[in-house]
Design a protein around this nucleic acid. Structure first.
Lengths: 208, 208
DNA sequence: GAACCTCTCCATCGAAGGGTGTAGCAGGTC
DNA sequence: GACCTGCTACACCCTTCGATGGAGAGGTTC
């Protein structure tokens, strides 16, 4: 019984490379590859699969999709950042595996096999983090606050955030103050560093 | 005559995948793959090659190496960011090709063939940027301005930067305004994204 | 129903940031 | 000497941000 995989990554070179690498493995069939979230539904409808390999760089679009995705197939998240936080978040949302892109194909295969058997696989470091978070229960941001963080940390001004989210600038300020309180941060600059380092936002700068 | 390639990327999955993908191509031989700058010298000494595929994510370590590398083999830079700026910089430093990771293998092959023939290959958008910068003579940041950028982008306020560099806050503002002008940026938030994405400042992971 | 949380909104005010122009001085080059 | 670049500094003015305190609507929990 071969494991049926689907690859979701917006980098064609990585996607195609991974596919060609996986096809060399026994008991693995890559049944599809898509470059964006909108194509995933169609692909899943066309060809059911056992495991979805999901690029976490796309978390902005897909993090929230993990819960529903995980009902249709086991999700293994591929991440490029060293931050355990975003990986832990993905796992909490229902991902069944977490594999760093710097790992070798052998490690990915181990994870795939484990997940195919119904287990959850993650690197030891993340495992520690995952266990640790059960204790102190740090004050989590609300979903609205998280939205504000994404907007602000990606460079938007308060007024722009307000327009984007269809709320008043006053509300944006209120949220922002609450966020600063919760995370013990000084201003939007520190918030940006926090957001980037913990994988909440990706750095992608425009062509000047 | 096969083209001899060497792959430099710290993500094993990408590296191995790309290798397996390239080995399917005619006239291509992957003679080596390394995960870090320090291993590149040894690899080049052991097995000479025609083209080096270099991950630009590693630019912090390797950008400065491009001039010397390009004497030993043609360098094609693989980049994950959409920013033309860093690509243009790499080309100015001697890279012979620039390929985005979201491109398909066919595009990479086109670039490899072009570079193997002695040409320089880059995406049309970057080509425009490259040409444009030839005119106004892309104004580089001065060393002082770069210092200001590092301070500001790492979260310091103008007053703190002034203290740090032992200059007045007015001077910091002057520098900052000049920097905004040169880089066509709006404010310190955009500057932060620019600095991080182009490797001027690093963001350490905090794993909460 | 009371307590609590979340999201929404407002006013006010001081702090910080940013735009524009101007200018002195040191170091080089033509 | 004339010219240019880079670093320094200031004034003036306006915008944006952040802190504080208050408040109502809707929801959940106990």
């Amino acid at each position: 019984m071969a494991v049926r995989l689907m690859i979701v990554d917006d980098h064609a070179l990585f996607r195609q490379g991974l596919k060609s690498l996986l096809m060399l493995q026994p008991n693995i069939v890559v049944v599809g590859e898509v470059d964006r979230a909108s194509a995933l539904d169609d692909a899943l409808a066309a060809t059911p699969c056992d495991i979805i390999l999901l690029d976490l760089q796309m978390e902005r679009w897909l993090m929230d999709e993990i819960p529903s995705l995980s009902k249709r197939a086991a999700v293994i998240v591929l991440t490029a950042t060293e931050s355990a936080a975003s990986g832990v978040k993905a796992l909490r949302l229902g991902a069944r595996g977490l594999v760093h892109k710097r790992f070798a194909i052998e490690t990915l295969m181990t994870a795939i096999e484990a997940v195919a058997e119904g287990l959850v696989w993650m690197p030891p470091i993340v495992q520690a983090e995952f266990a640790a978070e059960g204790g102190p229960a740090a004050r989590q941001l609300t979903t609205r606050e998280a939205e504000i963080v994404r907007c602000v940390a990606s460079g938007m001004r308060n007024g722009e955030v307000a327009t984007q989210l269809s709320i008043s600038e006053s509300t944006v300020k209120t949220h922002l103050n609450n966020i600063f309180q919760k995370l013990a941060l000084r201003d939007r600059m520190e918030l940006t560093h926090y957001a980037i380092s913990s994988g909440l936002v990706a750095v992608q700068n425009r062509d000047r």
